[in-house]
Design a protein around this nucleic acid. Structure first.
Lengths: 144, 144
DNA sequence: TATTGTTATACTCTATAACTATA
DNA sequence: TATAGTTATAGAGTATAACAATA
């Protein structure tokens, strides 16, 4: 058969376009204009994985350090994260969520995901399973 | 059980982060700096669906018309698309690929997708099937 | 010297609002 | 009036290069 190479090329093509269109749609689904999707993603990662340095956060989100610096500065200005000196390494900084961020995440994340959650509800359980598995695979691809 | 609402919220969360990280990774995978990923997506859509108006192209790519105007202007400047008057409707414009775009798509798309194709090859056939199905579902979600 | 983070700068992507031309 | 497209403008997101501080 040896159809794999062709299939893979077609999959790469379709997957690329689907992800681009879907991510555009997600970004446009903004309700509150104070916290952007990028900000929310950083906050979510901090909530899930706990306090970490800007560098670690950048690695998690697959962005370059200067890009994360900008995000952290904005979040600090909004009172959503704190920057503390690292206990032993003077070069490093520890970014952590403030209580305000915890509250915001509970409320805002739900509101922002309302559209997506609703759409997901309209899918079949099988389709949701596909997306659940695809999420893990895409994260694996992104981190590789 | 009634676990669906909770599952859906968690899925919305994970899917959002996975798509954001994956799309960042895709954008960063730029090899040639003359044609951007957005440009390539528009060209791909024109190749697959044939000549169409800027408005139709914007709908396909889930962007607003002014955003597509900018892309089309850039592509025309690079000699990759032509803008012709619509035969019957004087308001409309028809965007079509030039021969140069055909050549570029064959070569450049493959080159740009080399990274992704390689990564996809490392997956199991089952994982690729998941991504293939997920692509279709994400397109459905984006267009809904 | 190597690492961590930041500043400076610039480019891509995308949107909304206002305008023009045609239907 | 309504529609298609464009222009003008702005903001979000991200990168590379250069710099400062610490290890």
């Amino acid at each position: 058969m040896s159809r794999t190479p062709l299939d893979t090329a077609a999959l790469a093509h379709d997957l690329r376009l689907a992800v681009m269109r879907f991510s555009r749609r997600l970004r446009n689904q903004r309700v509150d204009h104070s916290v952007t999707l990028t900000h929310l993603a950083a906050l979510s990662t901090l909530k899930r994985h706990g306090a970490m340095s800007p560098g670690e956060l950048a690695t998690h989100e697959r962005v370059q350090p200067p890009s994360m610096t900008r995000v952290v500065v904005a979040l600090e200005g909004m009172g959503l994260v704190t920057r503390s000196p690292h206990p032993t390494d003077g070069r490093q900084v520890v970014i952590d969520l403030t209580p305000a961020a915890g509250e915001l995440l509970d409320a805002e994340a739900q509101a922002r995901e309302a559209w997506l959650s609703e759409r997901l509800h309209e899918l079949t359980p099988e389709e949701r399973t596909v997306l659940r598995e695809a999420s893990a695979i895409m994260d694996k691809l992104a981190s590789g």
